[in-house]
Design a protein around this nucleic acid. Structure first.
Lengths: 224, 224
DNA sequence: TAGATTGTTAATCGATTAACAATC
DNA sequence: TAGATTGTTAATCGATTAACAATC
């Protein structure tokens, strides 16, 4: 099934941007739940992110009807529903390839564990790292990728190798059965259509900030 | 000057998505330059990212006319122009607040240096970290933020503190004169309009991958 | 010249916002 | 009841793509 066509029965394709926002609504719902609240509104759900109430309702409508007119949404119920929609109502094993500075930082990153993402295997080309244990996981050589992915039924991977080897390692991941890659290497990956890639490119994000700040700080235009 | 209205003289506002793509074109240009090429086309510029030639030309048209019909673009010239547009033709001092795992990894991140972003000051609340030196920069207490930002004329900041203190620290940054924040804390920041924030939320990005993979791997729908 | 490729206009497409009857 | 808030339709807005005359 094509993920872009998922939704409630007979639904139109889900626009790309919707899923990202649904993640945000889930965050807000969990925050409201921690505050001890039980009901909320489309206004309150979008507010911290500057998203209008109509947008919130339209996004949720991609997946079904979850609110009651005049009342709003039940926080606990909607959390359960959205977790299932996003697929985070179950554990997701991850592999991490490339144990540099960033790889080690990701290994300790709290945000993953709290969302039921768990690094179950680590791979590196460096023979000095292979065999060592980090956070309870022993580093393996890249040759072990295929067997490990099959054994753990892993679908998702964190790619933290240098730019030069990223494409090659991605191909090995895909051959091993990986279907989604969070790519930290600053190069575009060529991948087949059944594999999803999200690029985390910090220098591009800083560049975008610099552009905005450049404009607002001193009024210098590119031609200036 | 409102950054959304920047561009060549008398130009329309630059659409948000354009700047991100221009960063990608610059990457590709630099890659082609390293390969020893001197000319390129709108087709070649967008190809690694799956961006169509018409889109590339339209994006560049926001800033001026840089190509020649029948010929294409001069790689060296266009690199100079795009760097100036993006503001990466000069050094950008950065401050880093919060020296946890992620903060330390960012400090060593190559991608920043290669784009002329330099961490010039580090701040942390932990008295044990204050006074220590990492990568040639001595950690200061948060109280020193204001003076440091003024001294270095810093506009950009990396926010790597825990979620609980992110908003408070962001406010201190803004009071000190910071205009752009790369936010690694998994909470939305409330900031005034003259301050730009880019959220780097890895668990949301993984969630989005999980959603896509969930659909393509086993056809399970949210209702299944 | 013929082929390639630009910049730009017009057409298409998709996403956001506003409005409102229906409901609690 | 009156006020609040939903789901949904229609209107608006913006972004992408196609097409093409102009140029080298």
């Amino acid at each position: 099934m094509d993920s872009s066509r998922r939704g409630h029965p007979n639904a139109k394709p889900v626009p790309k941007a919707v899923v990202g926002r649904v993640s945000l609504y889930l965050r807000q719902l969990e925050s409201l739940q921690r505050q001890g609240l039980s009901k909320t509104s489309s206004d309150q759900l979008g507010e911290p992110f500057g998203i209008k109430n109509a947008q919130v309702r339209k996004d949720l409508a991609c997946f079904g009807q979850f609110g009651r007119p005049g009342i709003g949404y039940d926080i606990n119920d909607l959390i359960v529903v959205l977790r299932r929609i996003l697929g985070v109502d179950k554990d997701w094993p991850l592999i991490l390839v490339g144990l540099g500075n960033l790889g080690r930082a990701l290994l300790r990153y709290r945000g993953f564990q709290s969302r039921r993402f768990h690094v179950v295997a680590i791979f590196d080309v460096d023979p000095k790292k292979v065999g060592q244990t980090y956070h309870g996981v022993t580093v393996e050589p890249l040759e072990a990728l295929r067997k490990s992915v099959a054994a753990h039924k892993t679908s998702l991977a964190l790619l933290c190798v240098p730019a030069e080897s990223a494409q090659r390692v991605a191909e090995q991941m895909i051959a091993a059965g990986i279907r989604g890659i969070l790519n930290f290497a600053p190069v575009p990956l060529a991948t087949p259509p059944h594999v999803s890639v999200t690029a985390v490119d910090l220098s591009i994000q800083l560049e975008n900030l610099a552009y905005k700040v450049q404009g607002s700080v001193d009024g210098v235009s590119w031609a200036g």
